[in-house]
Amino acid sequence: MKPGTKLKSAVCDTEVMVIRGSDASVECGGAPMVDEKPAEPGALDDAFAEGTAMGKRYVDEAGSVELLCVKAGKGSLAIDGVILKTKDAKSLPSSD
């Protein structure tokens, strides 16, 4: 996954942009993410249904993958079945 690549959920409205990528395959709502949305969304896995939030960044434990959620949805982002955590933005005063 090249930085800048956009991925879409196959089961919900979630869309992400890859900030930092690896060879890992990203899942959303229990199903692998895709380049083009299927005509009919698949079924959302209840174990991966915490939802995504627009503007949040998601990372894996090793920090090798970072995704920016550009469209929110009902599924959870995961790699190999492990749910990704949100990366908290540093709380900084506005400087521009």
Partner: peptide, 8 residues
Amino acid sequence: ILGTVDFM
């Protein structure tokens, strides 16, 4: 921007 600004 992504490192220093929270969306919305």
